[in-house]
Computed example of a mutant assay.
Amino acid sequence: MIHAANSFALSVVSSIPSPSVSFIDLGPLRIHFYALCIIAGIIAAVLLTNHRLTRRGAEPWVVIDIALVAVPLAIVAARIYHVLTHWDFYFGPGADPLTALYIWEGGIAIYGALIGGAVGAWLGCRWTGIRFWTFADALAPGILLAQAIGRFGNWFNQELFGLPTDLPWGLEIDSDNAAFPPGLEAGTLFHPTFLYEVVWNVLGVAVLLWLGRGTRMQWGRLFGAYLAWYSAGRIVWESIRIDPSEIILGLRTNVWAAILGVVIGLAIIVIQKRRHPGFEPSPYVPGREWAPEGSVQSQNTDDFVDVSEPQSDDVPASTATSSVATK
């Protein structure tokens, strides 16, 4: 009886099946699950970032004003980065250059999204008056959550998987899939790198939320922690992926990007700690403060008295006893 139960349990987890479909048709409209995963990730990031930014004293939903600029630039830059790092796939012999525009088929690079999104976020913050680093710290857990959700799009597309494996959680890939490596037998299992990254990212969300409590990780330091955490995991997952990629000095381009991400993340933490040893007194730059209903604006434009909401955990204990929050 026990042996039979163990055998059944082993057979249940002997592999991870891939979805048999990656889209649905609603009349003339084709909806790709990849796109739905990306959209779901964006929504989750916006909701979590809005909650965190509002707790810091920002106007509710100001994150949407910033996202209207940041998200489109992130998507465009993500696609451009992917195409540039997979040049032969789109512009090599026998390739169709028009497929570089087929973003619904998959192929957006997270590091490209970070570059484009950072530019868009900076512009959005200039527009709204939010401090860029305040927004970056508020966004850090949300963007990692969005990346975890978005990775399920790779699962639906049966793409970006790892080396062959005989582990119980090996990923099934259809042998007629264009990404299936030639020369391997049908039924070969592969490392589910999408799942590894999902688990790593969700764990990272919990770590960042914990680190973000209080004031010790402000002025962009929490974003630096995000960049270092995500990139450290990406070095591992990227090293076992077998999808085509440009190779530089024996390493995939995204491995180099991940190494650079770790370095930049740690540099942000160290540099911002030295530049800003104190805490962020306001999410707004001087002169752009938002006074919620029930607040009393003081003579000094750098100070406001908030009588409508209790102080959040992000304000040090020394100021939590006072009704004045100093920027």
Rank of each mutant, 00 (worst) to 15 (best):
A45S: 14
I39W: 03
G41Y: 01
H51N: 10
R55S: 13
L53N: 08
H32S: 06
P60I: 00
A40F: 08
V63W: 05
I64T: 14
L48F: 05
G41D: 00
A44L: 14
T54W: 05
L48H: 03
L36P: 09
G57P: 06
G57H: 02
R56T: 09
N50E: 14
R30D: 11
I39D: 05
A35V: 11
V46G: 11
T54Y: 07
Y34G: 00
A67C: 13
P60E: 02
E59D: 13
I43A: 14
T54S: 11
R55P: 08
A35P: 03
A67R: 07
A35N: 07
I39H: 02
A58E: 01
L36H: 06
I64R: 13
I43S: 12
R52L: 12
A35M: 09
L68Q: 12
L68T: 10
L47I: 06
V46F: 14
L47M: 06
I42N: 12
Y34I: 04
R56E: 15
G41W: 02
R30Q: 11
R55E: 15
H51L: 10
R55T: 04
A67V: 14
T49C: 11
F33L: 10
L48G: 02
G41S: 03
R52T: 05
I66Y: 09
A58R: 01
I66V: 15
A44C: 12
L68M: 15
R55C: 04
I38M: 06
A67D: 10
I39V: 14
I39M: 04
V62T: 14
I66H: 09
L47T: 03
L36D: 10
A45C: 14
L53T: 09
H51C: 06
L36Q: 05
I31F: 08
N50F: 05
N50Q: 07
A67Y: 12
G41T: 01
L53P: 10
I39K: 01
I43R: 08
I38W: 08
I66R: 13
L47P: 03
F33A: 04
R52Y: 07
V62G: 01
H32A: 09
T49P: 12
A35R: 10
I43M: 13
G41R: 02
L53A: 02
P60S: 01
L48I: 12
F33V: 08
P60L: 01
V46M: 15
L53C: 02
I66C: 08
C37H: 02
E59T: 08
A45G: 13
